[in-house]
Design a protein around this nucleic acid. Structure first.
Length: 419
RNA sequence: GUGGGUGUAGCUCAGUGGUAGAGCACUGGAUUGUGGCUCCGGGAGUCGCGGGUUCAAAUCCCGUCACUCACCCCA
């Protein structure tokens, strides 16, 4: 097979799709209860949108974007995440002039050219929300509480919720200086990546897994000690609200996200169950109070998160395979196949999900097919049934069979399906 | 970008120098127009690809491609 789906991208076949539907509808229902409304953005955006919002020195922008030139003119990029598009749309349509607080949700594929692994794909699906116009911290807590409740409603119970704060620009500047002052004497002991990080984005040193770097990072001053009074009040307000809501969480002082646009609140939910592989971050999010303005809009606070749907799917318990067929129609003789098609249309018009095998075949093979499809009911139609205007209605689960006048077949089937 | 693992039937895999296999799936049958269980039968594979060694290669050697897992980073 020489033509395959490209590396890191995969087909989702009908057998898997019901789990996706279950996840997606659960998400929609949950966030709509909180007043969120769906938005859809283009999959392709101007490259500059991501460079300016996500940050020039991030891994995403430096090496993971699918960027191409549109017929020799504009540089376009397949979206690597959703927040940048949301902000662009918010600004472009002057939403701030229409309502003081905006709550949006979205769902769709994202693209990053990384090396694939379990739970990490080049085309992957995210569901996310954004709130514009509310500075928090109570909305921050509500959003975190909402998503934690959502995840648990999926049957995913073994999770850890991390929250942190990186403060606003002033906090970050102060902390950056303090961190560099602390790291400078250790520079030579750090791994080469971290030495590079010191210049590009010192906060990332805190996240390094190289043992010696981790030791040094553990002794580093905590971001939380450098929060300005306002930033500290915000973070404390968040924690009070979370405690009141009963949302379990752990404060993680060194939470660092791979996107530069965050301010103040940061959070992350880690899955701890089996089957997730090494990619156990189910969702990540935070506040980005500067981004709307920096993309040309008015000064507008905002917060959001995005969840990886494949990872949620991996962490979700499996449910028994349902059936996609209510009634399977069996033609007892080849001569009645047209009649079988007609009966099928009658039942479908009545709202039933109906399958049949119009190729014919033996009665036995057609019934076998009905069973394989996990149909609850088989309706058998032969020459004598057609003459008498009836069908044999067989309940495949209860192993019972009755003769029903054809005009009542749909109602009778529906009644059986309720049991 | 770095490292490991694996490529044999649609799927999961066994087969380490001598005729290509199993289970599941698919399909036909076990006397009249009745599924599941059981039994019998059937179709199905350039053994990833290219080269080399050998009388003989799925098996040994070299190369290559693909998939996969981990690191990095993230969702």
């Amino acid at each position: 097979m020489s033509l395959r789906a490209v590396k890191g991208m995969k087909d989702i076949l009908p057998d898997e799709i019901s789990k996706w539907h279950r996840l997606e509808t659960a998400f929609r229902q949950r966030v709509e209860r909180y007043g969120f409304r769906e938005v859809r953005f283009p999959i392709v955006e101007p490259t500059a949108l991501f460079v300016r919002s996500i940050g020039e020195t991030t891994d995403i922008v430096e090496k993971e974007m699918y960027t191409f030139t549109d017929r020799g003119e504009k540089s376009l990029t397949l979206r690597p995440e959703g927040t940048a598009s949301a902000v662009r749309a918010y600004v472009q349509h002057s939403i701030q002039a229409k309502e003081p607080v905006t709550k949006w949700y979205y769902l769709g594929p994202m693209y990053r050219r990384e090396r694939p692994a379990k739970g990490r794909y080049r085309q992957f699906y995210q569901a996310g929300i954004e709130v514009f116009g509310d500075p928090g911290p109570y909305v921050d807590a509500e959003v975190i509480d909402m998503v934690v409740g959502f995840i648990s409603s999926l049957g995913i119970t073994d999770v850890e919720v991390l929250v942190g704060s990186i403060g606003g620009p002033r906090t970050r500047e102060r902390y950056r200086d303090a961190l560099l002052t602390y790291l400078a004497p250790h520079r030579a002991e750090l791994c080469s990546d971290c030495q590079r990080r010191m210049d590009a984005n010192p906060l990332r040193v805190l996240d390094c897994k190289v043992p010696r770097c981790a030791e040094i990072a553990a002794e580093a001053p905590s971001m939380l000690q450098y929060l300005t009074d306002d930033d500290r009040a915000h973070f404390e307000g968040l924690q009070e609200a979370l405690t009141l809501l009963g949302t379990p969480y752990r404060v993680e002082g060194s939470l660092v996200r791979g996107l530069d646009y965050y301010t103040r609140t940061l959070f992350e939910v880690l899955g701890k169950g089996e089957g997730l592989g090494a990619q156990n971050a189910l969702l990540g999010g935070g506040r980005y109070d500067q981004m709307v303005e920096s993309l040309g809009g008015p000064d507008t606070p905002a917060i959001g998160f995005a969840m990886g749907l494949e990872r949620l799917l991996m962490a979700m318990p499996d449910e028994g395979a349902g059936s996609h067929v209510d009634v399977f129609i069996v033609a007892a003789q080849p001569e009645v196949r047209a009649q079988a098609a007609l009966l099928g249309r009658e039942l479908r018009d009545a709202g039933l999900r109906v399958e049949s095998d119009l190729r014919g075949g033996s009665l036995k093979s057609q019934l076998r097919r009905a069973d394989k499809m996990n149909a609850r009911i088989a309706m058998i139609l032969g020459e004598s049934e057609v003459e008498q205007g009836v069908v044999q209605l067989k309940d495949l689960r209860e192993q019972t069979q009755e003769q029903v006048p054809r005009p009542q077949a749909a109602d009778r089937a529906r009644a059986l399906l309720q049991t």
